[in-house]
Simulated assay, not measured.
Amino acid sequence: MSTTSVDTPPLVLLSGLAADARIFAPQKISFPQMHCPGWLEPERSETINDYAGRLAETLDNDPCIIGGASFGGIVALHLAEHVDARAVILIGSIRAPSQLPMFARCARPLGFLIPFIPVRLLQVLTRPIATPFGKRHAPFVYGLACQFRDSNPVVFKWSLRRILDWSITPKVSCPVFQLHGDRDWTLPLRYTDPDEIVAGGGHVLSITHPAEVNSYIRQILNEVASTLSTAREHHGPQQ
């Protein structure tokens, strides 16, 4: 159960590449007020910042705590420039383009090949995994396969392209908190400098290490609530 203050701003978390709200199922149980917006279909050649601006228009105009896993964390950083964010929480994500792994930076010249990725075919190939047999014998892989199978190919290709050409670090005015696994091979720990490290944690921390992720989120929510409460005592209610 969540023990956060009633004064805590709403929590908005963005899922990662080829993922959806199911990746935060353990967090939804502990934080019923959590909102995981679906991915909008991107416009042609839309930048991450422009996309974040459109996404902001779908959210309430109230103070909030935003965050995301993997690519969702990158978008959350840009989203913080468009909403009244009181904190950004990165879960298996990174703070700046300079923290992208070497293989992603080396792959940038190959970005023109992304439109030719046979996403539909790959989704068909995951069907044997996304079955009751897969769920029984490999539940973690089953969950990821189900999300990839249901993902929008247009969103998938746009997200992959934006990862490769990400070059501008968002100017975030609120605190940024970063949780990372020491066995994350997708965004390796050696390229980034998180505030807290999960021992044995891979890339999908929200599912594999929900207790650690929930504890970290709860700590941040309570810290933000305490800060807002202190501000009200000294300056009166914020507008």
Rank of each mutant, 00 (worst) to 15 (best):
S5F: 05
S5H: 05
V6Y: 00
P10W: 01
L11C: 14
V12N: 13
S15V: 13
G16W: 01
L17C: 09
L17H: 14
A19R: 14
D20P: 07
D20W: 02
A21Q: 13
I23M: 14
P26F: 06
I29F: 09
S30N: 11
S30L: 05
L40Q: 05
P42F: 01
E43H: 08
E43W: 05
S45A: 11
E46M: 09
T47E: 04
N49E: 08
Y51T: 14
T58G: 05
L59R: 13
C64F: 00
G67N: 05
A69K: 05
A69V: 08
F71N: 07
F71S: 12
G72R: 02
G73M: 03
G73C: 06
V75I: 12
V75T: 12
H78V: 14
A80K: 13
E81F: 03
H82I: 10
A85R: 04
L90G: 02
L90S: 00
L90M: 07
S93V: 06
S98I: 11
Q99K: 04
Q99Y: 04
M102E: 15
C106A: 08
C106M: 12
P109V: 06
L110P: 06
G111L: 05
L113P: 02
L113A: 10
I114M: 01
I117S: 09
I117D: 04
R120G: 14
R120F: 13
L121Y: 11
V124F: 10
L125H: 10
L125K: 13
R127M: 03
A130H: 15
A130I: 07
G134C: 08
H137W: 10
A138W: 15
V141F: 15
C146K: 15
Q147G: 06
F148R: 09
F148P: 08
F148T: 06
D150G: 06
D150N: 11
F156I: 11
F156R: 01
I163W: 01
K171T: 06
V172Q: 12
C174A: 10
P175M: 03
P175K: 03
L179Q: 04
H180Y: 04
D182W: 03
R183N: 06
T186D: 14
P188H: 15
R190M: 00
T192D: 02
P194I: 02
P194Q: 07
D195S: 09
E196C: 13
G200P: 00
G201K: 12
G202W: 06
V204F: 10
L205P: 00
S206K: 03
T208H: 05
V213D: 04
S215A: 15
Y216M: 10
N222D: 14
V224S: 04
A225W: 01
S226G: 08
T227V: 08
S229N: 12
A231H: 01
R232G: 15
E233Y: 00
E233T: 11
H234P: 00
H235A: 15
G236M: 10
G236A: 13
Q238S: 14
